[in-house]
Design a binder for these strands. Structure first.
Lengths: 150, 150
DNA sequence: CTTGACTCCGTACCATAGTCCGGAGTGTAG
DNA sequence: CTACACTCCGGACTATGGTACGGAGTCAAG
C-alpha cells in the first residue's frame, strides 16, 4: 500500500496540492509531522476532512464557517442543535441572497424590455435610467465630513 | 456657491472620499487637475458618474464591467444594442446564480429537515452527510500529478 | 497668525480562496 | 548512480472592492 503523500491525498480528496497546503496554513487541517527524512504522509481522516470542507463549501459555507463547524465536531459537548442552527442561519442567508438577486433580475428585465435594442446610444433607456438618479441633495444624513468618511 | 471639493462630491454621490480616490486610481472617474495651490474641485458630472457606478453595481455589474459600460457611453459609434447585450448577458449570469443558490437552498432544507435538531452530535445527520461522501477512489480523471495540480 | 479641520498622496492593509515560484531536499526507476 | 519527478517551504501574486495611515500642504475661523 503506497503511503498517502500529499499528491495522493490531494487526488483522493479532489483538490490540488496547493489547496491542501493552503488549508494547512489556515488551520483547517493538521499538517502531519514531518518524518526525519522523507515526505509527510497523511492519515485517511485528512482526506475525509477535506471532502467535508468541499461539501460544506458547496452549501455556501465560507472556510471560516467551516472551521467553526469542524471545531464543533471536535468539541465534546456539542449538541446537534448547534449544527442545525448554523445550517438554518445559512439557509436564511441564502434566501436573502436569492431575494436580492431576484430584485436585480427584475430591474435588469425591466431595463431590457424598455430598451429599443437598436439605434444610437442617445436613445438607450438603460444608460438613461442608470445615469439619471437625481433628486438627492447630499447632506440628508451627513452633517459632517467625518460621518461620511467613517 | 461652495466649490465641489472631494468631501462634498463624496457626500453628494453617497460614497466615501476613499472610494472616490479608489475610483480615480481605477480609472473609473477622472481626477480633476490640481490647481497650482489648493484643493481639486470636481465637476458635477463626476457626481453623476459615481451615481451611475453605484446604480450599476446594484444591478450586479462589477467595476470592470461598469468601466466597459462607461467606455461604451463615451465611444461615438456605440449602438444601443451593445448596451442591451451586456444587460442581457448579465441577466443570464444572475439567473444562473439564482439557480445555483436555489440548489443550495434545497440541499440545506433537506439536511435541516432530516436532522433531529437535538441530541448528541453523533446522531446529527447534517454532520454525517457532510462527512460521508465516500465512494470515489481518486484517479478517475487524473492520471498524473500534474493534471490535478494544474 | 495660530489652530484645527480638511486635502493630497503613496503605500500598506483587510477579507476571500486560493495559485504560482524557486531553490533545496528526497525517492525511485532504469 | 544518475536522472527526473516529486516534496517541502516561505513568500509573492491573483482578483475584488475597498479601508486605513501618516506626513505634508492648505483653508478658514477666531
Amino acid at each position: 500500500m503506497k503511503p498517502l503523500i500529499i499528491s495522493r491525498a490531494a487526488s483522493r480528496a479532489g483538490v490540488s496540492i496547493e489547496t491542501i497546503r493552503f488549508y494547512e496554513r489556515k488551520g483547517l487541517i493538521n499538517q502531519p509531522p514531518k518524518p526525519v527524512s522523507g515526505y509527510r504522509t497523511y492519515p485517511a481522516e485528512t482526506v475525509c476532512r477535506i471532502k467535508f470542507i468541499r461539501q460544506a463549501q458547496e452549501l455556501g459555507f465560507s472556510l471560516r464557517e467551516i472551521d467553526e463547524l469542524l471545531a464543533l465536531k471536535a468539541a465534546p459537548g456539542t449538541d446537534c442543535s448547534d449544527v442545525r442552527n448554523r445550517a438554518t442561519a445559512k439557509l436564511h442567508e441564502v434566501d436573502t441572497k436569492i431575494e436580492q438577486l431576484q430584485g436585480i433580475r427584475v430591474a435588469l428585465r425591466e431595463l431590457i424590455s424598455v430598451c429599443p435594442g437598436r439605434g444610437a446610444l442617445r436613445a438607450c433607456t438603460i444608460m438613461e435610467s442608470l445615469a439619471s438618479v437625481e433628486g438627492d441633495k447630499e447632506g440628508q444624513s451627513s452633517t459632517t465630513q467625518k460621518e461620511n468618511t467613517k
